[in-house]
Write a protein that binds this DNA or RNA. Structure first.
Length: 468
RNA sequence: GGCGAGGUAGCAAAGUGGUAAUGCACUGGUCUGCAAAACCGGUAUGCGCGGGUUCAAUUCCCGCCCUCGCCUCCA
């Protein structure tokens, strides 16, 4: 099967995702900082990465997926103290919540999920190498900084070369932070942060004194530990291109002989109601917020993949309603095929959905692929299919659903709901009135039932009552 | 200011140098006592604006406008 072609941020071209070792696609995703519930914007990135992994695996290439947990930084320390908890118990709680949300969104768990705190040793070792190589220096206060000027390729990923010549407003501001006085250059970034009173109990020993690792370093150290000096692909949100990924490249390339990531995948941001998400506007949703409004995680997943991962996606409540209907349509199509092909579907190849699959292989064009799936379903006449054709169609449909990570919901009308006896009785009365051709009475009863939240579906032989 | 992404029907969103997928919503028909469901149809002479190249541009080029992101620790 052909390999997935994926856009590469560094070369700005679409490149095939062929494993360096010829066997397994090894990739790293920047994981969450666990100081609160992740919001749907965070999840857009994780869902896009999940689809990427599923497509690679569906095309026959196994993967090694590493995603970290950032469990020490300013925010985790600050909020754990606010909560009166130890950093460990605080971050463990939010890590669990993250896992619950991931499972609800049908995200495949990474093969390895290292935590920053559990890899302090590796981070210290990397700093020592950087200092030895002249790429880093210890400041008088015990912090250690990376010397950006020592790495000539700095800025290649973000195309922000010669940054010192283009100091923006935020940099002028940061120069006044007391923190920054100890750096040789404004662009140098912290590898190790000296212990400060507000860190509380959260510090570790190091050759430069007590402190904690800088944020950028953890990914480099854990990648070296689990994926080595060279690996296939690195992914994250677009906002991480600079400085985080730029810094990772600098740290890793200067402390090893490898080339670090050979392919970079970045996911565009999610917008809400046409604007950016922010807590102050109140449009920053978590899965729980949406569950309270009655939307399932699968519906959220559908919305999150319904735009191309490299284009901004506008999230609205209407798009959730739209997703619900679309999923219903898929579930009904599957049911119609299942009537002809009741065996459990084997999702091995795309079959009649070949075009949709090819679309997906072209830089993960999920919306294009979903459109192609519907186009095929719209033309498919289950009644005219042989059992073999129906089986091929059903297998192909499930192949696509599996690649997209979509699970089919129960068909709404048939959702197993208990109809209360009094509702059932009213419905029976209406049926009797209808049989007696007393249309007025029948309609009145139907309206009553509707007001109570129940719909009547008539057929020749009888009627069924379903929740509205 | 620099770098990057984007502006396609009411909403969302694909796509292409030759006359605009798909989902939702809306709407016509079949069915029904009427509905619902289901099924069969319809809905952008138009793809931010202005030029240019071309037999032909939404698709290429130039200019402009607007939105969003990043410019030191936000997916």
């Amino acid at each position: 099967m052909p390999a997935l072609k994926l856009h590469d941020t560094l070369t700005r071209t679409d490149r095939e995702t062929t494993p360096l070792d010829g066997k397994t696609l090894r990739f790293y995703c920047c994981g969450p900082t666990v100081y609160g519930p992740a919001h749907i914007g965070n999840f857009r990135t994780f869902v896009a990465q999940d689809v990427m992994r599923r497509v690679v695996e569906a095309s026959g290439t196994p993967t090694l997926h590493v995603r970290n947990i950032t469990d020490v930084d300013d925010k985790t320390i600050r909020d754990s103290q606010k909560a009166g908890q130890s950093l460990t118990s605080f971050t463990q709680g939010w890590t669990q919540k993250f896992h619950t949300d991931c499972a609800a969104l049908n995200l495949l768990p990474p093969h390895i999920e290292p935590s920053a705190v559990a890899h302090i040793t590796q981070q210290v070792a990397m700093i020592e190498k950087l200092i030895a190589g002249g790429h880093a220096y210890a400041a008088p206060d015990g912090s250690v900084y990376f010397r950006v000027s020592s790495f000539k390729d700095y800025g290649r990923l973000s195309h922000l070369e010669d940054r010192e010549l283009r100091l923006g407003a935020s940099e002028a501001a940061s120069a006044t932070d007391s923190d920054e006085y100890t750096k040789d250059s404004l662009t140098d970034f912290a590898l190790w942060k000296a212990r400060k009173p507000e860190d509380g109990e959260n510090f570790w020993p190091s050759p430069w004194g007590e402190g904690r690792p800088g944020w950028h370093l953890e990914c480099s150290a854990m990648i070296l530990e689990y994926l080595g000096e060279d690996f296939d692909l690195h992914s994250g949100g677009v906002d991480l291109i600079f400085p985080h990924h730029e810094n990772e490249i600098a740290q890793s390339c200067c402390s090893t002989h490898g080339h670090f990531a050979h392919h970079w995948m970045h996911v565009a941001h999610l917008m809400v109601d046409g604007g950016k998400m922010s807590k102050s506007i109140g449009n920053l949703y978590t899965l729980e917020d949406l569950a309270q409004r009655g939307y399932s995680a699968v519906e959220v997943r559908y919305v999150l993949i319904s735009g191309h991962y490299r284009a901004p996606l506008n999230f609205t409540m209407h798009s959730l309603d739209s997703a619900r209907q679309a999923l219903q349509k898929l579930a009904k199509a599957d049911k119609a095929l299942a009537a002809l092909s009741p065996a459990l579907p084997e999702a091995k190849s795309a079959g009649p959905f070949e075009k949709a699959w090819e679309t997906l292989l072209n830089d993960l064009n999920v919306p294009g692929a979903i459109g192609a799936v519907f186009a095929v379903l719209n033309k498919l006449k289950p009644a005219a299919l042989s059992a073999e054709e129906a089986t091929a169609a059903r297998n192909g449909l499930h192949f696509m659903l599996q690649a997209l990570g979509l699970t089919l919901p129960a068909i709404a009308d048939e959702a197993a709901t208990d109809v209360p006896a009094e509702i059932q009785a009213l419905a029976q009365q209406r049926w009797d009135a209808k049989q007696a051709k007393d249309w007025a009475a029948a309609d009145t009863l139907r309206k009553e039932l509707e007001a109570a939240g129940w719909l009547i579906k008539d057929s020749k032989e009888g009627f069924t009552v379903v929740a509205k």
